Simulated scan of single mutants.
Amino acid sequence: MSDKEDRRDVLVRVEHTPTKISFGPSQEIDLSGIPEAQRAAMLVEYQRGILDVSKKAHDMKVDVDALHATLSHLGGATHEAAKDGTSVTITHTQDTSIGRTEIIMGNTAEAQRGQLSRSQTGDTNWTPYYIFGGLAALVLVVVMLAG
């Protein structure tokens, strides 16, 4: 191959691999000093990142829409129950990509307090375990003293 053919081949490849990446309306990075293979790899990685951000934004929108529907439904149910004179407290918790949401609605003193119980927040109630452990220890002490 002659030098002219090599240069033409390089020019064709350079035209297909951009030398700049746009990060928005006016931000870009000059990649002209980086070898073509590395520019191509960077472009692939950049496109993967864009897809990841797009997926996360889509997931968050789905979660926000679901939360909106949940709030509308719970609010309507609370309103209907209260309108009939029924005492009502509705609680709901969920963990999504937008974070943890704790909802308390109602016309009772519990709802007005605005605090979820430990079981409603998902905390484990350790009291039965402590009682069982205490009883087991008591039995063990009695067996040791009797023996």
Results as ranks from 00 to 15, higher is better:
H58W: 09
S117P: 07
V142F: 15
R48W: 15
R7G: 02
S22F: 09
I103Q: 04
L43E: 08
L140M: 04
H73M: 08
T93S: 04
F132H: 01
H16L: 15
N125P: 08
D9P: 08
A40K: 09
S2A: 08
T89A: 00
T121M: 14
T96V: 15
T101Y: 00
L31K: 03
S22V: 10
A40P: 07
Q47A: 08
E45S: 10
A81M: 08
V12W: 01
T17K: 00
H16V: 15
D52Q: 12
H16E: 14
R13T: 10
I90N: 00
A69V: 10
H58C: 02
S26T: 10
E102W: 09
G122M: 05
G33E: 04
P18R: 11
T124Q: 04
S54P: 01
D6F: 15
K83P: 02
I50H: 00
A69K: 11
D84M: 13
A136Y: 15
M60H: 06
G133P: 07
L43C: 09
D65A: 06
R39I: 10
H92W: 00
H92I: 00
V12K: 01
T127N: 02
I29D: 07
L71K: 06
H68V: 09
V143W: 13
S54M: 08
A41S: 06
T91L: 03
S2R: 08
P18N: 04
P128K: 03
V143P: 04
H16N: 11
L140R: 01
G122E: 02
A81T: 00
H73E: 07
D6I: 14
K20P: 03
H79R: 13
A136E: 08
A136C: 15
H68A: 08
G99T: 11
D123Y: 10
I29R: 09
V44Y: 14
T96W: 15
T96I: 14
G134I: 11
G114I: 15
T91S: 02
D123C: 03
G85C: 03
S32A: 07
G114M: 15
L145M: 10
